[in-house]
């Protein structure tokens, strides 16, 4: 069986004042039908650009190369018309900037109903019913009334859910959700993640879930891809990568969630140092300047993702540091 989405050697470059800056550098991954892939990583790692590259939504100053295959068909180089057709029917998108997909001048329900009509050809009344039901499913209280009001009359969390409803309403094969639950309280987060896992289990929908919430990853994703400075550092089944991370960055990311002993301090644990500047990446491993395990080889040769212990790890020392020692790195 071929993967629903297959990315090979994706590069995304942004043109800035200082020339071309590499933002995504040779990323490969795939998502099967009925699978949820979580994409996590540091702010600015290139997660949203990757999502936009898949959807044909990169801005004018951004260039991509590599292969993006959706259901066996190459999308790289496809026309905007072809992308539009796919985005309406088969690819659902929840952008990080949720407001960018809602028009300020139409009531939320009308926008949803229009999307339904243009794809499913339903009658006005039927499309309206589908729209109201979609709002209800994402937990908008009193949905039939709220369908009639404008986006600016929604709270932040309601707007985010309206965009999720929009992405799901035409039952796409793949949903790409970029930070879909950041504005939601725990109960609603659970409801939205439950919706996504429900679609996966019942309709075989595939999901790419870009998120900073590692608990959401643990609770709903099948596989996880961890990115750092535009590259993959570790990927594989969630119950391997999150339980026994093998790359020092992944270990640090999980360690920064550890609460400090109560009452001793209000400060939170963080990985020392800052991510590298994309326009002046260090030679070798991009994490080396912050990595407690870095050796000379790390500062010279960029590690490639290799299969290790049931997952891919891009780290020169993946094999030679015992798990117990890794766990102590950020203590």
């Amino acid at each position: 069986m071929t993967a629903l989405l297959e990315i090979r050697d994706l590069h995304v470059t942004v043109r800035g004042q200082g020339g071309e800056v590499p933002a995504v550098r040779g990323l490969s991954f795939q998502v099967d039908r009925g699978q949820i892939l979580a994409v996590v990583g540091e702010s600015g790692a290139g997660k949203s650009l990757t999502a936009q590259a898949v959807l044909g939504l990169l801005g004018p100053s951004v260039a991509m190369s590599g292969s993006v295959k959706f259901d066996g068909r190459e999308l790289a180089g496809a026309t905007q018309a072809a992308y539009r057709e796919l985005r309406g029917r088969r690819l659902g998108f929840v952008p990080q900037d949720a407001l960018s997909v809602l028009s300020p001048v139409h009531p939320v329900g009308e926008q949803l109903a229009l999307a339904v009509r243009s794809v499913q050809g339903a009658s006005r009344a039927a499309a309206w019913d589908v729209a109201v039901r979609a709002l209800d499913r994402v937990g908008i209280p009193d949905a039939s009334r709220r369908a009639r009001v404008y986006p600016h009359e929604y709270s932040g969390g309601m707007r985010q859910r309206a965009v999720i409803a929009m992405a799901m309403v035409n039952q796409p094969d793949l949903i790409i959700a970029d930070e879909p639950t950041t504005a939601l309280d725990p109960r609603l987060q659970a409801q939205i993640l439950g919706l996504l896992t429900g679609l996966r289990d019942e309709s075989g929908t595939a999901v790419v879930l870009v998120t900073h919430d590692l608990a959401a990853v643990a609770g709903s994703a099948d596989r996880v891809l961890i990115m750092y400075a535009g590259r993959e550092v570790e990927s594989g089944p969630v119950d391997r990568v999150l339980v026994t991370p093998r790359s020092p960055y992944a270990v640090g990311l999980l360690a920064s969630l550890k609460p400090m002993p109560a009452a001793t301090t209000r400060r939170l644990p963080a990985i020392a140092g800052a991510p590298p500047r994309p326009q002046s990446l260090p030679p070798g491993c991009a994490f080396a300047p912050r990595c407690p395990l870095a050796v000379d080889e790390c500062r010279a040769i960029e590690p490639e993702p290799l299969l290790y212990d049931g997952r891919l790890v891009a780290c020169h020392r993946a094999g030679d540091v015992p798990a117990a020692e890794l766990a102590e790195l950020y203590r």
């Binding site: 608990a215 959401a216 609770g219 999150l242 339980v243 015992p322 890794l326 766990a327």
Partner: peptide, 19 residues
């Protein structure tokens, strides 16, 4: 990690550091 029950705000700090 249990897959079925989403635990959206349970930080999986307990998942990360145990070999």
């Amino acid at each position: 990690v249990p897959r079925a029950a989403p635990t959206p705000s349970g930080l999986p700090h307990d998942l990360g550091l145990r070999p």
